Computed example of a mutant assay.
Amino acid sequence: MNIIVSGSMAYDRIMAFPEYFADHILPDKIHMLNVCFQVDGVTEHFGGTAGNISYALRLMGKAATITATIGHDHRRYFKWLESNDIAVDGIKIIDKEFTAGAYITTDKADNQITGFNPGAMKFSSELDFDSLDPENTILIASPGNLDDMINYPRRCKEKSIRYIFDPGQALPVLQPEDLIDVITGSFLLIVNDYEFDLILNKTGLTREELLALADNTIITLGEHGSRIYRNGTETKIAPAAPRGVIDPTGCGDAYRGALLSGLASGLDLEESAKLGSICASFAVECHGTQVYTFTPEEFEDRRKSY
């Protein structure tokens, strides 16, 4: 099974402010804000939905083709991917742009101020659909270039390619008519509970109408597991227990990567979602996204106790 992962490649730069933002912001001067927060340092992580999902897939023993864009500062990221045996052939380099980057500052109360530069993500990855075998391909369209998020599912429908739509943090800027069109006929819509409600709000659909658009829908619920909806039925997927929760960032992408690995292995959606739950439990045990790891034996041990 050829797995195509469409999404973003990004550097996440995380900074810790050792005080409280509120102590340095004057409420009566909020209209003319001019502040500087001196941080304790910067840690950089490899991120982006395409990178994160492909990393989880590799841990699960599967290879994916990444279709995404990256900037002229790509060398460190490519070196990381290659060291993890993840192919970079499908990643388009945009020489005149930086790689997409999130700059996240967190204070003592876990309040965050984030700046995001889309950089290379503003450009299409220009996936060649004519080179794909419809019978043996599954594509996931995750947050990344907005045109790709809408156009790739449409091309999948034209080519009879099975696809998963994962709108995530791009939902606020996606148009209602595009959302309805792309979700309709998809093999799977996967969102968290907030995102599902946001789609309802944007489209004006009822819950039942939205659930009827895709062949299957998965709603993830964080520590409460996930739910599969198909043909008017609901299947509960329990969460897998981590050793401890350190950072939930990226656990959704871990879930998606392991879910894809199950589907590519011929498992049904329920068994694949269980793999997603187990993989996500490893992801929350570490700071950062492509940081967690496990051996096949460790995964199997957790699967047995799941």
Rank of each mutant, 00 (worst) to 15 (best):
150 I>P: 00
230 R>M: 11
203 T>E: 05
134 P>S: 13
17 F>E: 06
246 I>W: 09
55 Y>K: 00
116 F>V: 13
228 I>K: 01
99 T>V: 09
108 K>H: 08
230 R>V: 06
274 K>S: 04
248 P>D: 07
187 F>P: 01
126 E>S: 14
183 I>F: 02
73 D>S: 06
87 A>V: 12
278 I>N: 00
38 Q>D: 13
304 K>W: 07
205 L>S: 08
62 K>W: 08
129 F>M: 15
285 E>L: 01
107 D>A: 10
34 N>A: 13
69 T>R: 11
135 E>G: 08
157 K>H: 06
275 L>V: 03
54 S>D: 08
56 A>N: 01
234 E>D: 11
231 N>I: 06
122 K>L: 15
93 I>W: 00
190 I>S: 08
131 S>D: 13
300 E>R: 12
48 G>N: 01
111 N>Q: 13
183 I>L: 07
170 A>K: 09
165 F>Y: 12
37 F>V: 05
275 L>D: 10
165 F>A: 11
2 N>P: 01
124 S>T: 14
58 R>N: 01
270 E>W: 02
249 T>S: 03
247 D>A: 12
80 W>M: 15
86 I>G: 00
125 S>F: 05
108 K>C: 14
222 G>H: 06
281 S>T: 02
248 P>N: 04
136 N>V: 03
200 L>Q: 12
57 L>E: 01
91 I>Q: 00
147 D>R: 12
157 K>G: 08
92 K>Q: 10
240 A>T: 07
66 I>Y: 04
289 T>G: 02
245 V>Y: 09
32 M>D: 11
164 I>L: 09
33 L>P: 01
101 G>K: 14
97 E>Q: 12
151 N>S: 11
208 E>A: 14
52 N>T: 03
249 T>G: 03
227 R>P: 00
73 D>Q: 11
90 G>V: 03
110 D>R: 14
55 Y>N: 00
96 K>E: 15
3 I>Q: 04
182 V>T: 05
40 D>V: 14
67 T>K: 07
181 D>H: 07
75 R>S: 15
98 F>Y: 15
296 P>W: 10
150 I>C: 04
50 A>Q: 01
78 F>Y: 14
256 R>Q: 11
174 L>P: 01
254 A>E: 01
53 I>G: 00
60 M>D: 00
81 L>H: 10
64 A>K: 04
24 H>I: 04
17 F>D: 05
58 R>L: 02
142 S>E: 09
243 R>F: 11
256 R>N: 10
205 L>Y: 06
216 N>F: 10
299 F>R: 07
135 E>H: 10
216 N>P: 03
128 D>F: 02
109 A>Y: 09
206 T>V: 13
242 P>A: 12
228 I>Y: 03
238 A>T: 09
75 R>K: 15
280 A>D: 00
61 G>H: 10
213 L>S: 06
118 P>W: 02
79 K>S: 15
66 I>E: 04
51 G>V: 05
109 A>K: 14
193 D>C: 13
187 F>W: 13
79 K>E: 15
157 K>I: 07
203 T>K: 05
6 S>L: 13
245 V>M: 13
92 K>G: 01
72 H>N: 15
228 I>T: 02
134 P>H: 10
32 M>V: 09
84 N>L: 07
107 D>Q: 10
268 D>W: 05
32 M>F: 11
99 T>N: 06
91 I>M: 03
42 V>N: 14
210 L>E: 02
246 I>Q: 12
146 L>W: 03
111 N>I: 03
208 E>P: 08
132 L>R: 01
38 Q>M: 14
39 V>N: 06
